[in-house]
Amino acid sequence: MSYRVRRGPWGIAVDLTAGASVAPEPARGAAEHVAGRVWLDLAPVLRHPHADRSGVRIAGDEAAWLRHGAALAAPAVEAGAPAAHTTITVHRVYFHPCHFQPEGLAAALLLWAREEFGPPAHPGEASFDAAAGRYVYDWRAG
């Protein structure tokens, strides 16, 4: 899944690879409970060494944006897998530091969820705030 936005002098670009597994019971192990019957496993992108620069590891504060995206996507995930528990595993995240803002991680996960489970997951509406020099997201948009 590639998320791209450019409405100002620079843009945000995040490539994310994830997968979903559905089971009758809640996830065990590294997965964290997000909401309802949705779980998030970030172990592949939190535990890999930074040194290889392959784009598979993110920092802990960046992981919070993936959690935010998963929480916003939870209604669509649950609608796509009724009466089952779904674990989303993020396998790889890549971004170039020049084209990155951490909120883009949430938007990329929302787009992935939309492709995997269908609407209503959405990336929110991003607008460029020139005075702040950054993108501002309205997570209610869509």
Rank of each mutant, 00 (worst) to 15 (best):
V90F: 06
A23K: 00
G104R: 03
W10L: 13
L46H: 11
G133N: 09
V5H: 02
P24I: 02
A43E: 14
G29Q: 07
G124C: 07
Q101S: 13
V22I: 15
T17C: 10
H122P: 00
W112K: 02
H96E: 09
G69C: 09
V45N: 03
G80H: 05
G11C: 11
H85N: 11
G104V: 04
G11A: 14
H91T: 15
G80W: 06
P120W: 07
S2Q: 10
H99K: 05
S54K: 14
P97I: 09
A20Q: 09
T17P: 05
R57W: 04
H68Y: 14
A130C: 06
Y94P: 01
A76H: 03
H91M: 11
P82R: 04
H96F: 10
V136M: 10
L111I: 11
D52R: 15
A107C: 08
V45S: 09
A31V: 13
A74M: 09
A18R: 11
A71W: 15
E116Y: 12
Y135Q: 09
E78V: 02
R140S: 14
H68Q: 12
I88N: 02
A18T: 10
I12M: 00
D61M: 12
F128M: 03
L72W: 04
V56Y: 15
A76Q: 01
A20E: 04
G55S: 10
P119S: 07
S2G: 06
A126I: 04
R4A: 08
